[in-house]
Every structure is written in C-alpha cells, then in structure tokens.
Simulated assay, not measured.
Amino acid sequence: MDLGLKGKVAVITGGSVGIGLAIAEGLAAEGVDVVIAARGVERVRKEAGRIAKAFGVRAEGVACDVATREGTEDLLADVERLFGGADILINNAGTGSNETVLAAPDEKWQAYWDLHVMAAVRLARGLAPTMKRRGGGVILHNASICAAQPLWYEPIYNVTKAALMMFSKTLSTELIGDNIRVDCVNPGLILTPDWIKTAKQLTANKGGDWQAYLDRVAREHAPIKRFATPQELANFFVFLCSERASYSVGSTYYVDGGMLKSV
C-alpha cells in the first residue's frame, strides 16, 4: 500500500529510543526524511545515522531538551536550517511518574507540564506556519490510556496526559482550515525500555524474573494479555500520517489491546 509519504519531512521528539524511535523507523521506511530529537547527544546522533543508512533517507539527530523553551527553539531553528520546515510533527517526548497528590511539590507538577504539554504547544506553534506554507501537514500527540483511565500511582502523569489530549482536540479545530490534521493516540501497554527497566528494578530482590512480572501486568490490565511492541504502535502512527487517514481530524485513538474499560 502506497501511503503517499515519500519525500515528506517529519520531526519526532523523544525519537532516540522506544516508541519515538520505532515511529522514526516506520516513517523512514516509507521514504520520509526524519529529524529525531532527544537529550542524549551520542545516542540521538547514532540512531539518526543508523536510520539514514538502513532506509536511504536523510535523518538528522538534534540534541535538545524540549521541556524547555530554549530546547524547543533550538529544535525549531535546526529544522528550519536543515529542511526549511516540516510536514509531520510527532509530539512523543514524555515519561511516567510516581507520587501522591498531597506529597508532590509544585516543581514536579511544573516539570511534567512543561514536558508533556508545553513542548507540544511550542512545537506546534513553531511548525504549523511552515506546514501551512508547504500545503498542509499532520501533528500527532502520543498521550496515554491513563489520560482517560488513570493508574493510581502517577497522578501528575495522568493529569498532564489528559491535558495533552485536550490540547490535541483544541488544536485540531484551529488548524484544519490550513489543511493541517491533528490527532491523538492513547497507547496502552507498550514494551518500552522504561517498562523493562522498571520491571528489573522491582524484581531485583525477588529472583529477577522481570519477564514474569510484565506478563502478570499484561494479564491484569489487557484482555489481549500481552504488551505491544513499539513497532506495532508505530504502524498506527505511520498510517495516521498518511493520505489514507485524510478524514481523521481531532480524534483520539486507543491502541491498548482492549485495556480501556469504557466505550
């Protein structure tokens, strides 16, 4: 199936590992030039080089912290310098949390707000005008099932991902007149390096069977009884970027193996 993406330019935040890297690879496989952004200089450049060699596209790695105004400004400047703008923006950068509402300090709330919400706001504000000049574009937000079905131990993550989902909906109505489609994806259990790291930490003093721990999590939460691979989720993102999803505007999609318990 020709997805009509060849020659486009995509910016993916949190793009050097896990879901973001899988999305970058999926887009590159369709002939998309990619800019992957992440904080780690060595890894983001290494992965960009690997993608370019593997898929025969132009791939650039930009080291920046998109949770800061300076980081987003640096990324926007590099995208303009390297490609003259972009056609696709994947706001993927994020991380889980662990706290209680009563104990979490203001600083932690602000840090997650900046990472999950303001990074998306600033990058959309910076790239939407270039998308308009190029004839249109696509902006996708990677939120979480926790935006609608929260887990008890990460209230800040839940709240900021819910805000990202609402931002996505609001932005979609503002930009569709410029032929820029905006959608949101709420993944369920995706087997990222963060999940594996957490499982190893939790089982270190209990025999170290981290795989069994993850299997229990999957059986408890997902009717499909397994985690998805980052590539399975990336396939959905790539489709939403394509002409095949041309009537998809302002929607939120759950890719969760049946984890959501409402309709």
Rank of each mutant, 00 (worst) to 15 (best):
S262Q: 12
R226S: 01
P150A: 08
I145C: 05
I51E: 04
S172D: 04
E60F: 15
E70D: 11
D78H: 14
V79K: 10
M165N: 14
F239Y: 08
K8H: 07
S251F: 02
T229W: 01
M131V: 02
V17N: 15
A77P: 01
V9Y: 11
P193I: 01
G136N: 05
P230F: 01
V121C: 03
A218K: 04
Y247Q: 02
T170M: 12
L5N: 15
T68A: 00
D2M: 08
G126C: 04
A54W: 08
G61Q: 15
R69D: 15
D87Y: 03
W109C: 05
L102C: 10
S97L: 03
A234C: 02
D209K: 04
G137D: 01
D78N: 12
L164N: 08
V217Y: 06
E99F: 04
P193V: 06
V249W: 10
Y112K: 08
I190F: 14
M165P: 00
L82P: 04
Q211F: 04
A148R: 11
G126Y: 02
Y112Q: 13
W210G: 02
G137S: 03
M118Q: 03
L76V: 10
A93R: 12
D114W: 00
E174W: 12
I224E: 12
D215T: 11
I12M: 03
E30T: 08
Y254M: 11
H116I: 02
G208Y: 11
V57I: 10
C146W: 07
E30Y: 05
S246A: 15
I176C: 07
G257L: 07
T252G: 06
A37V: 10
V35D: 07
A111P: 06
R69Q: 14
W113G: 08
S97I: 01
L214Y: 02
N91H: 12
I23E: 12
E99A: 02
Q211M: 07
P187R: 13
M1G: 14
K169D: 09
V41H: 09
V32W: 03
P150T: 00
A218Y: 00
G136P: 11
Y112F: 13
E243K: 11
A148D: 09
C184L: 14
E107W: 02
A59Y: 00
S168G: 15
S262G: 15
R216W: 01
A38N: 09
L140Q: 03
E70C: 05
S262T: 13
F55S: 01
A22W: 10
P105W: 02
I190G: 10
G71V: 07
C184D: 13
G96K: 06
I90S: 10
R181Y: 12
G94Y: 07
I19W: 06
L76E: 07
I23C: 14
A103N: 13
F237I: 05
R219V: 09
F227S: 05
E243A: 13
E47Y: 03
E220H: 09
M118D: 00
S16V: 14
R181K: 10
T252V: 13
C184E: 09
